[in-house]
Write a protein that binds this DNA or RNA. Sequence first.
DNA 1: TTTTGGTTTAACCAAATGGTTGAATCGTAT
DNA 2: ATACGATTCAACCATTTGGTTAAACCAAAA
Lengths: 206, 206
Amino acid sequence: MQSEETKVDTEERIIVAALAVFARKGKDGARMQEIANEAGINKAMLHYYFRSKDKLYEAVFRHVFNRFSAQHATAVKESPTFAKTLKLFIDGFIDSIKEKPDIVRLMVNENLSGGTALGSMIVEKQHEKAAPSILKKKLEEAIKNGEIRPVDPDHTLLTVLSCCLFFFIWAPTIHIKIPKSKDWDAFIESRKEHIFDVVYNGLQPQ
Amino acid sequence: MQSEETKVDTEERIIVAALAVFARKGKDGARMQEIANEAGINKAMLHYYFRSKDKLYEAVFRHVFNRFSAQHATAVKESPTFAKTLKLFIDGFIDSIKEKPDIVRLMVNENLSGGTALGSMIVEKQHEKAAPSILKKKLEEAIKNGEIRPVDPDHTLLTVLSCCLFFFIWAPTIHIKIPKSKDWDAFIESRKEHIFDVVYNGLQPQ
DNA sequence: TTTTGGTTTAACCAAATGGTTGAATCGTAT
DNA sequence: ATACGATTCAACCATTTGGTTAAACCAAAA
């Protein structure tokens, strides 16, 4: 019997490599050989650990979704004021995605191909401690006590999500103007501020 | 010689079918047979009209990009006030996409796979009359004459784009809560209003 | 009617793809 | 040392894939 370490390591490497390939090519466009190459292992190993392409895709999806929501949930604790909660949400969300942008790309691919995996997982994992739930709750509170204008909470949540996610999806096009390694980090920081600035002001009572 | 009508018609049908398949599967994930089925023609026709998968993809990309920017440009004429221009931009943009959401999906796929086709085309087609250029110009004017706060025009444009595009990309997930045919149109209309509402208020001087 | 040119099709091909297999390795317990 | 179960790999297989071809089709010109 080989060490538990080795097995976990190989499994992890496959997941990481598969995520990268699925994220840029989609489920159908991804090639098992490409995943194997990216993981630096034999193609047969993919089937040894995950039986089939379908199972591998499902495993990757579950894995990254769990990691992402867990990480994001810890980053976005509930804060006393709505303003602080919103700021934490935006910063935490963007930081999470910045660290692993492939996760968002995978989810976008799932949406593009009409898959329901993401939706059912969101429904399944929806709970009070999830970051979007926290923000929505705070939003409704803030509307009640007049801190912000009466806006549709669902639309507002979607607006924040759009602003935080979209530029990662659109990155290659944006990179034509913003050099990748040099200014990208600075761009992300300025983006955080801009989103909070516009959204929070946009919710203020007139 | 067959009628010009027939040829154009077949070419058009191929483009339409190819757009649909490329949009949901990406370039690598798309299958020539699937495109042929969707167009209701023999697979060999694809090669007869477009030589190869690469050429077909390129043709589809150019075609839809031109149609989209042309349509959007006519919808978003410059208006006297910034507020009106912004409203026209949002409504026009969303209406354009609503009519052919596959165009956005195709562009997203191009970004996900790191392709540069979109970026170079945007640069190539960038001109004064393009809708984003109009909005940006009006934005800078409005900042100068104090109608709105001094914000980064590029970030603001990106924010508007995010809000208008993202929910189409994320549609399958959103559809879990918003039934597809029944309430989707109403949702889009309310989304238009919400985006203008939050963004315009977010840009107001305090 | 026959010819002519573009158009459409079924059948075909080589390469790529997802998946399988049996032998070779490797660490560990006996 | 040796036996054993988990792991890794090269070679292999059946099917699918992008692409080709030669023949059939069809409208209009001759």
